[in-house]
Design a protein around this nucleic acid. Structure first.
Lengths: 150, 150
DNA sequence: ATGTAAATGCATAAATCTTGTATATTTTCA
DNA sequence: TGAAAATATACAAGATTTATGCATTTACAT
């Protein structure tokens, strides 16, 4: 049920501008999916939808970036989560371990996230080094990683 | 019977994401193994499988404590899906386009799949070339890609 | 063939996930 | 800023998924 409904939500917001969660409920009802605002709120979270202000001053829910399937950022996040197996930091260096051959992917994903406190990344086969501005930044970024992998 | 079935289970979860024991029963049935949820539950215990939340919000069974290489395949598949944006072939070469910087990841994933008809792969930033044995293989692999991305 | 232990199915208990209701929190906009 | 609208969350109920006790079957050594 959940999977199906969430797929329907993606289709709906790809087709029409949806301003509120209640409107989404209405559209879902037309398709035979009955649910409540609480559920929609959770779906919005699961799907990483964002409510954006249009040029016309109204609002609409969109998948971050493109009106398409999983957007770029979310994809990177997925790739990052799937490739990283562990991480740690020492001084201002964060070290990530990945599945074989995927450190470049993980580092590339990180690069694209545009995180200011990262000075640079370098990837071997299954290990990546992230040079952070300082130890504080390293620690904070490790927390972020923990968050992302959760 | 048990040994064989459990081996099949390992192969299945290494290949595709399995969300529930019932789905596992369905997959086993396709392979000619008939059993019930109770049996699967015991197999899951025997094999020390764990049900984990994936990056995409769904669930899947993975091996834990066992040779991890087995469940890498499913993760690679996910990574492949998320990174590839388009693909095509000409003669015996398959060309895949990916998100920026992720061609190495995609090619690495492909390499690890151990597909016989692939002679080799090379990755730029967002483009990968796969040298296939012949055009037939190229065409067939493109079909497989289509399948994977679906 | 027969006894014994492992394997399995059925029924159901236990655990986990999903959802709705009520309510708190945040956001919008006059 | 404050009221109304919109969204998020705590909690409990409901639904789904998984685990297990018990009876039966199967495999196998004798």
């Amino acid at each position: 049920m959940k999977k199906e409904r969430q797929a329907a939500i993606l289709k709906i917001i790809a087709t029409i501008d949806v301003e509120t969660q209640n409107q989404l409920i209405a559209e879902l009802t037309k398709l035979g999916y009955y649910s409540t605002q609480a559920t929609i709120s959770r779906d919005v979270k699961d799907l990483h939808l964002v409510k954006e202000l249009t040029a016309l001053g109204s609002y609409r829910y969109v998948t971050r970036g493109k009106p398409d399937i999983l957007n770029h950022a979310a994809r990177l996040r997925t790739i990052f989560r799937e490739s990283v197996t562990s991480y740690a930091f020492a001084q201002n260096i964060v070290v990530i371990k990945t599945l074989p051959g995927l450190a470049p992917a993980a580092c590339s994903a990180i690069d694209t996230m545009g995180i200011k406190s990262i000075v640079g990344t370098i990837a071997g086969d299954d290990t990546g080094f992230l040079a952070m501005h300082d130890m504080d930044a390293a620690e904070r970024f490790c927390s972020e990683i923990e968050e992302m992998l959760r």
